[in-house]
């Protein structure tokens, strides 16, 4: 059974246009051996593979509604601490070596520049490594095994794009307030509201604010 590994920074050259387009379907694990090291503990990928394959099977290629399902599946199957998940090498291993077809299934090839970041860049930005983004968005939105906030946040393209590129998304009550108020808002509205909210929070300490105060602030930002 496959085990989670870490892809080293030296493997950057493996993200090629051929891989992004699927001309190279996947790399032979032996061939990338010199660029991988074992993850710090044994973590089998069997459950992860099954869950990811199931989501792929139930969603057409390019269907953005698979984001919520993928985020939940990836987060449920990869029980990682935040410290462990902070290593970009594991996400790169999953996207570049282990399951590159998942990245290609979610994102239609448009340009190599953006496709490249979906394999390589770490984080939660909309153009980050697909697995890293799914796992981290789920981590920031899950509430005791309840992924409903995750699904709602990723269900809105505008919200998932603009919310998770901001530090305010690291604060769970703030994220919850944003999703509750903005999940169904028009894209332009979401973008502007989050920009104003970011500025407002620069004058406040979100951690010191209650749910109602935060929701009030989001509404005020929306104007």
């Amino acid at each position: 059974m496959s085990r989670l590994k870490v892809l080293l920074p030296s493997a950057r050259h493996l993200v090629t246009e051929e891989l992004a387009r699927g001309v190279v379907e996947r790399y032979d694990e032996a061939a990338v051996g010199e660029h991988t090291v074992d993850f710090e503990r044994r973590l089998d990928l069997g459950g992860f593979d099954d869950a990811v394959s199931a989501v792929m099977a139930s969603h057409d290629a390019g269907d953005l509604s698979m984001d919520g399902a993928m985020a939940e599946a990836v987060h449920r199957q990869l029980r990682l601490s935040r410290r462990e998940a902070a290593d970009p090498g594991i996400w790169r291993y999953l996207a570049i070596v282990h399951r590159p077809e998942v990245v290609r299934h979610r994102w239609e090839y448009r340009s190599f520049a953006t496709m490249r970041t979906r394999f390589w860049r770490h984080g939660t930005r909309f153009d980050a490594n697909a697995f890293s983004r799914w796992w981290w968005v789920a981590e920031l939105t899950v509430m005791a095994e309840d992924y409903s906030l995750t699904h709602r946040a990723l269900g809105s393209s505008a919200l998932s794009t603009h919310l998770f590129s901001r530090q305010l998304a690291w604060h769970h009550p703030t994220v919850a307030a944003c999703v509750r108020i903005l999940a169904d808002a028009p894209g332009a509205d979401v973008e502007r509201t989050l920009r104003v909210l970011g500025k407002m929070l620069g004058l406040r300490v979100a951690e010191a604010m209650g749910r109602e105060e935060l929701e009030g602030l989001v509404r005020a930002a929306r104007g």
């Binding site: 901001r166 920009r195 970011g198 929070l201």
Partner: peptide
Amino acid sequence: VDEAGRRT
């Protein structure tokens, strides 16, 4: 600037 110090 916003809370992270980014220019808005």
